[in-house]
Design a protein around this nucleic acid. Structure first.
Length: 760
DNA sequence: AACAACGGGCTTTTT
DNA sequence: GCCCGTTGTT
C-alpha cells in the first residue's frame, strides 16, 4: 500500500480507521487535509462505494482540490460520485430534489445576505417601526441565530428568554418581523443561507422516508473544520450518521473562529457524548512552519482557557524570529511592508505568490493596495466585495433569478426600473400596497392588472406590463435554451449591456467588462455541460451561483500574485512569508470583542490562525495612528504582541522599548524627518489640524500631571480653557480624553500632546 | 420621474 | 473615507 508510506504514525492510524465514529484533532499544519484525502482513498480501496461517501468541507474550492487529489491516489475518476462540498451547497442540492415536500419550488431562489437584509428593511418599514431602532443588521443576526439553533418563528415567540432579551434591547417586535420574514421568503420561493440548513433539518425531521434514504445512501460521513459547525449543521450530521455511525470529524479547537455565525465548540464535546466509543486521533507534528513560528504560536494559544490539550511540535529548522515592525501611520505601514516584500523577493528570489498580507478587517486593504500599485507589484485581494456581489453582476443575475422564479421579490425590486424604464417609486409603492392587500406577490400584481387592479397611472401600468411580458419570454426559455444563449439575450434585450456600454467613466468600463466576464463564465459552463451531453440551462447555472465565492473562482487562474485577505479568509492556506498587519488594540483584538473572555479568546485563536499560516517568516506590524472613519486616530499596540513569548521575537524600527511603559517619559518623539513624512500623509484639512496639534507637542508635557486622570475630572487647557472629562480611551502614552469645554464644545485630545492640567 | 447634493452610519470576521 | 439612502431641485 504505497500511499500509506508517506504518512506518520498518527496520520496512518487515522487513515486506516474505517468503521465507527472517530475524531481527528489536527494541530495547525499537521497534514489534516492529507489525512482526509488519504482516508477517503483508503475507504475506496477497501471496497466502499463512492456513492455512499459524504464529505463536507469548508469551501467549495477545498472540495474540488480534494477530489483531484483522491483521483491522483486512486486513479481514474472514482471521486466523481462522492458527495462532496460545503454544507450549504450539498444540502441546497438535496433540498432542490425534495423541495416539493416542503412546499417550495425546486428552483427556489437563494437569498444572499443583501437580499435578506433588504427584505427585513421593507418589513420594518411596512410595520411602521422605527428603522433606527430595528436596524436591519441587528434584526438579521437575531433571526439568523434563531435559525441556526433551529428555533422556528412560533418557537421564538413562545420562548420567554428570547422575547425578554428583545424587550430589554427595546426591540420587542422582532418575533413579528421574523414571522413575516419567514412567510415572505416562503411566498417568494426563496431560502436564505440559514434556511439551507434549517430546512434540511425540517426535511429530515418531518419526512422519515427521506431521512431513511439518505441514512442508507451516506454510509460514510466526513466533516472537515468540525470546530466551525453550528448546531443546525451538527444535527444534520448526527441524524444522517445515526444508523451506521461511520462518522469522521476533523478539526482543531484552537482554530475555531466562526462563533459569530453560530459555530459552537460544544459540538466537539457533544461528539463525545453522542458516540461514547469514538476513537480520538491527535495530529501534533507540524510540517509547515519553522520551529520559531510553531513555538511562538504555541505561546500565544496557551493563554486560552478553553481548549483541548495538545502539543504541537516540529522537527523543522529554527528559522528567523518573528519580526515586529512599528510604523507611524497606516500609509507608512503600507509602504514599509511593500518594501519588505520587494527586498525579500530580490534577496532570495521568491515568487510573488509566496507572500500574504493578512488583516483583521477588509477596510485595511487600502493602504497596501496603494503602495503595491505604486511599486507595480502584482497582487490580488480576496474577499471584500466579491465578483458576484458587484452591483452590475447582481443586476444581471437578478434578471436570471426573476426569469427562473418570478416570485423572487428581491430580484424584482432590483431590476423593475433598471435600466430606467420610467417605473418610479410612487407606482411601486402602490403595487406593493396592493400586493399586501390581496396577499399575493408583486409579480402576481404586475403580470395581471385585470385581476389585481391598482390605482396607478396608465403609463406606469403599461410599462410594468411590458416588463412582465419580457420576463415571461425569458422564463419560457429557461429550461430549454442553453445557458449562454439566454444569458446573452437577457443582457442585451434587458438593456443592461447598452446602459453600461454608454457609461464611459472608468468604473463604467469596468462594469461592462465584468458583465462580459460573467457571460464568458456562463459560456464556459454551457460548453462543459454539453461535453457531458447535458443542455446546461441558465436554470442549472443559477443553482450554484449564489453559493460561489471569490475563493472558488480563483483556482483556475492560479496567478503569481501577492495575496491580500482577511485572516478569516486565510484559514486553511499557507504561505512562505506572512505579514500580519494592524496589530493594534481595538482593531485586533476588535473593539467589539473586548467585553467578554470568550470573545477575546476567539480573537486570540484568530491571531493563532494568522501566525500558523506562515512557513518561513512571519512579520507583525502596528501603527501609531491610523485613519479610521476618515479620521486620523491614535492607536495602541495590540496586547497580542506582548503575548508572544519574547524568545521568538525581534523588534525592528523601534524607537523605544514597548514594555509596560505606563509613564510618559518612556515615550520618544518621532525624529524630524519622520514628523515630516507624517505631515505629508493624507492632506485633508482635518489631518493638517491633527498634525498641527501633533507637531506642536511640548517635549515636557509635565510628566505625570494627567497620569491618573479619570472620567469626571475637571481639567484646564491653555487654549480651550476649563472643561470636564467625559470619556477616556486607550492607556499609557496613547491615551485620549474626550473633554467638554463650555467655551468651545466637546474635544477629543491626545493626552501626550495636549497640555492638560487637572483642576478641582 | 430623474438626477444631483447632502447626511448618516459605519467596521468585525462569511456561507 | 465610503456607501447608502434620503432630500431637494428640475
Amino acid at each position: 500500500m504505497d500511499y500509506l508510506d508517506g504518512l506518520n504514525e498518527s496520520q496512518r492510524q487515522a487513515v486506516e480507521h474505517i468503521d465507527g465514529p472517530m475524531m481527528v484533532i489536527a494541530g495547525a499544519g499537521s497534514g489534516k487535509t492529507r489525512v482526509l484525502t488519504y482516508r477517503i482513498a483508503h475507504l475506496l480501496r477497501n471496497g466502499v462505494d463512492s456513492f455512499s461517501i459524504l464529505a463536507l468541507t469548508f469551501t467549495n474550492k477545498a472540495a474540488k482540490e480534494m477530489k483531484e487529489r483522491i483521483n491522483s491516489i486512486v486513479g481514474g475518476n472514482e471521486s466523481m460520485n462522492i458527495t462532496m462540498g460545503t454544507f450549504h451547497s450539498v444540502f441546497a442540492r438535496i433540498l432542490r430534489y425534495n423541495a416539493d415536500k416542503l412546499g417550495y419550488p425546486s428552483n427556489f431562489t437563494i437569498y444572499d445576505t443583501q437580499d435578506s437584509r433588504s427584505l427585513i428593511k421593507s418589513i420594518v418599514k411596512e410595520f411602521g417601526l422605527d428603522e433606527k431602532v430595528y436596524k436591519s443588521n441587528a434584526v438579521q443576526s437575531r433571526i439568523s441565530s434563531a435559525k441556526n439553533n433551529l428555533i422556528s418563528p412560533n418557537a421564538y415567540e413562545a420562548n420567554v428568554e428570547i422575547v425578554s432579551e428583545d424587550r430589554m434591547s427595546r426591540k420587542p417586535e422582532i418575533f413579528r418581523i421574523y414571522k413575516e420574514y419567514a412567510k415572505r421568503c416562503f411566498q417568494a420561493g426563496a431560502m436564505d443561507f440559514d434556511d439551507l440548513l434549517y430546512q434540511t433539518n425540517v426535511l429530515l425531521r418531518d419526512f422519515p422516508d427521506v431521512l431513511h434514504f439518505y441514512q442508507q445512501k451516506f454510509k460514510y460521513a466526513l466533516v472537515d473544520e468540525y470546530q466551525d459547525t453550528n448546531y443546525s449543521q451538527y444535527l444534520i450530521v448526527k441524524k444522517l450518521a445515526a444508523v451506521y455511525e461511520n462518522i469522521c470529524v476533523v478539526g482543531d479547537d484552537a482554530q475555531s473562529i466562526y462563533s459569530f455565525r453560530g459555530a459552537n465548540i460544544e459540538n466537539i464535546l457533544n461528539f463525545k457524548k453522542d458516540y461514547p466509543d469514538f476513537k480520538m486521533f491527535k495530529l501534533e507534528q507540524n510540517y509547515r512552519s519553522t520551529s520559531n513560528i510553531v513555538n511562538a504560536a504555541n505561546s500565544i494559544i496557551k493563554r486560552n482557557k478553553d481548549q483541548i490539550q495538545k502539543d504541537v511540535w516540529t522537527s523543522n529548522a529554527e528559522g528567523g524570529k518573528i519580526n515586529i515592525i512599528r510604523c507611524l501611520t497606516d500609509n507608512e505601514e503600507g509602504r514599509v511592508i511593500t518594501n519588505k516584500i520587494f527586498d525579500i523577493k530580490q534577496g532570495e528570489g521568491a515568487d510573488y505568490k509566496d507572500f500574504a498580507i493578512l488583516y483583521r478587517t477588509n477596510a485595511q486593504s487600502r493602504s497596501f493596495e496603494e503602495s503595491l500599485r505604486k511599486l507595480n507589484l502584482p497582487y490580488k485581494i480576496y474577499g471584500g466585495l466579491s465578483f458576484y456581489q458587484r452591483k452590475e453582476i447582481k443586476d444581471l443575475i437578478a434578471y436570471f433569478r426573476l426569469s427562473a422564479n418570478p416570485k423572487d421579490e428581491e430580484a424584482l425590486k432590483r431590476v423593475i426600473n433598471y435600466p430606467k424604464r420610467g417605473i418610479g417609486k410612487t407606482s411601486m409603492d402602490s403595487v406593493i400596497l396592493a400586493a399586501r392587500q390581496y396577499d399575493v406577490s408583486l409579480w402576481d400584481v404586475i403580470s395581471d392588472f385585470q385581476r389585481y387592479p391598482v390605482s396607478i397611472s396608465s403609463g406606469a401600468r403599461n410599462k410594468m406590463a411590458q416588463f412582465a411580458l419580457k420576463i415571461q419570454s425569458y422564463s419560457a426559455q429557461m429550461e430549454t435554451s442553453p445557458a449562454y444563449d439566454l444569458a446573452n439575450n437577457v443582457a442585451q434585450s434587458s438593456g443592461i449591456l447598452k446602459d453600461l456600454y454608454d457609461d464611459k467613466s472608468p468604473e463604467g468600463v469596468t462594469r461592462y467588462e465584468n458583465i462580459q466576464e460573467l457571460l464568458a463564465g456562463i459560456k464556459e459552463f454551457s460548453v462543459q455541460q454539453e461535453e457531458k451531453d447535458e443542455i446546461g440551462t441558465l436554470s442549472d447555472f443559477l443553482i450554484d451561483v449564489a453559493l460561489l465565492t471569490d475563493a472558488d473562482k480563483a483556482t483556475e487562474e492560479d496567478k503569481n500574485t501577492i495575496t491580500l485577505m482577511t485572516i478569516h479568509a486565510s484559514k486553511g492556506l499557507e504561505f512562505p512569508h506572512v505579514f500580519i498587519v494592524g496589530l493594534e488594540e481595538n482593531l485586533f483584538p476588535s473593539q467589539l470583542s473586548l467585553t467578554s473572555r470568550t470573545e477575546l479568546e476567539e480573537e486570540r485563536r484568530l491571531f493563532y490562525v494568522a501566525v500558523t499560516r506562515a512557513e518561513k517568516t512571519c512579520t507583525l506590524s502596528y501603527v501609531v495612528s491610523r485613519y479610521r472613519w476618515g479620521q486620523l486616530v491614535t492607536a495602541e499596540p495590540s496586547r497580542f504582541i506582548d503575548e508572544v513569548d519574547k524568545k521568538f521575537v525581534s523588534h525592528e524600527n523601534e524607537t523605544r522599548g514597548r514594555s509596560g511603559g505606563k509613564s510618559l517619559s518612556g515615550y520618544q518623539r518621532p525624529s524630524e524627518e519622520r514628523t515630516q513624512g507624517f505631515g505629508m500623509m493624507g492632506g485633508g484639512k482635518r489631518n493638517l489640524k491633527t498634525m498641527k496639534e501633533a507637531t506642536s507637542a511640548p517635549a515636557k508635557s509635565g510628566g505625570g500631571t494627567t497620569d491618573n486622570l479619570k472620567v469626571g475630572f475637571n481639567v484646564e487647557h491653555d487654549r480651550f480653557g476649563k472643561g470636564k472629562v467625559t470619556a477616556l480611551v486607550g492607556a499609557g502614552s496613547d491615551q485620549k480624553a474626550t473633554v467638554f469645554f463650555p467655551r468651545v464644545g466637546q474635544k477629543t485630545l491626545i493626552l501626550k500632546f495636549a497640555k492638560l492640567t487637572i483642576v478641582e
